[in-house]
């Protein structure tokens, strides 16, 4: 089971700024281990975010994104107390969803 994300969401005027930290190895598939064997690729492929159930962000990621990625985005129409949900899916099919309340 993957570690939880850290999500901060804050309303600024009519916009909500969301900052997400994800815990993931993000292995490119290009590196070799100490025995010289290729370390298999393992990275987040899909990221989506919803605001009160409505999708506000959809992203396709690749192996160029760093380990333990940090994502910041903003959307309009949100206010304090709303729910923001973020989900990622990696190339092994593993999934993680976490939720935050807009402050």
């Amino acid at each position: 089971m993957a570690d939880p994300m850290k999500i901060r969401a804050n309303a600024m005027g009519d916009k909500v700024i969301v900052k997400v930290l994800m815990s993931h190895e993000m292995e490119t598939g290009q590196r070799k281990d100490s025995a010289g064997k290729t370390i298999p690729a393992w990275f987040i492929q899909q990221v989506s975010a919803t605001h009160n159930g409505k999708t506000v962000l959809n992203a396709q990621w690749g192996p160029a994104v760093s380990k333990n990625p940090f994502l910041e985005f903003r959307f309009s129409g949100g206010k304090a107390g709303d729910k923001v949900q973020v989900t990622w899916t990696d190339n092994k099919g593993e999934k993680r969803t976490d939720e935050a309340t807009v402050g």
Partner: peptide, 12 residues
């Protein structure tokens, strides 16, 4: 500094 992954360690 904004979005320091150390927070993931703090939470764990």
């Amino acid at each position: 500094a904004d979005g320091n992954p150390a927070e993931l360690w703090e939470a764990r």
